[in-house]
Design a protein around this nucleic acid. Structure first.
Lengths: 148, 148
DNA sequence: ATTGGTGCAAAATTTTTGCAGTTGC
DNA sequence: GCAACTGCAAAAATTTTGCACCAAT
């Protein structure tokens, strides 16, 4: 999927969420969302803030943090915690759901999707009566390059 | 498994790790480990520090943080990140490996073990040539009580 | 006009680090 | 005695909050 298209879908979803929740459409939210999508993935609030400064220096830290939370609420982004000090965010637009396997040495990361795991998660949730809101599944290890 | 026994195994493992790595056995490390095991589970550094203050007020924050890292290195504890602000630690002694499903409303938590998921994880790792060091698998949802 | 949003700076939290003094080996 | 360990306080890093002003509806 093209990034342009992804961005449009994300903006549309944001706009829907805002009217649904009677929140306001601001230029900052649009700019932050656009930059977030451009950056690609696994972005921290600080990285996003730095990227924003490059072409609009007037957006503050707090606004970035608040926007990221908004994107999560709107179903545009999700939180990831790689235990590296800060929370990371990833766009869920135009992507299949997936999990991560990460090299503890060099950070090399692979995204994978396993149907059996998905189904087993759903079974577990059903068994205990939980409804799943989100799934955090990250494997940490050593990649082939670093092991050699 | 009795807690006393768990504690003994943990202390033994610590002692082995210390001599293996040529590190030193200190009373603080023993006390911290004992208290950590007593507390049970999913403990933050701060919670552990507070518990320690109750009967030995002289142990500092830094020592607790350093001890927890040591316990992870020694294979006594593992890190858990429930996205609630701070890293939590759990003893792995005397427990089957397991994952967690947590209620986002009330925090109610169930531990589960699913062989199919374990196997699928191993297959994924093999497929991409990674050797798994640790697994972080947490499902977030709403528990039956909170949904009613 | 009303209410939510923003930017800023301060505060709160969590974790790490530097260092002088202590202790295990 | 040497090097590791500790406690403390300061610093670093991340995130939240209070508030005066601004802007969307």
């Amino acid at each position: 999927m093209m990034k342009k298209e992804t961005k449009n879908i994300a903006l549309k979803r944001l706009s829907e969420h805002l009217s649904e929740k009677k929140l306001r459409a601001t230029s900052q939210r649009e700019i932050i969302l656009g930059t977030f999508i451009d950056l690609g993935r696994h972005t921290t609030a600080e990285e996003l803030y730095e990227a924003l400064k490059k072409f609009d220096s007037s957006i503050g830290h707090a606004t970035v943090y608040r926007a990221l939370r908004l994107f999560v609420d709107a179903g545009i982004a999700r939180e990831l915690n790689f235990n590296d000090g800060s929370v990371r965010y990833e766009s869920v637009i135009g992507k299949e759901p997936h999990d991560h396997i990460i090299c503890k040495k060099c950070g090399a990361m692979v995204e994978f999707l396993d149907e059996k795991i998905r189904e087993a998660q759903d079974e577990i949730a059903k068994k205990y009566g939980y409804s799943i809101k989100n799934r955090s599944h990250i494997l940490f290890g050593i990649c082939p390059k670093c092991r050699r």
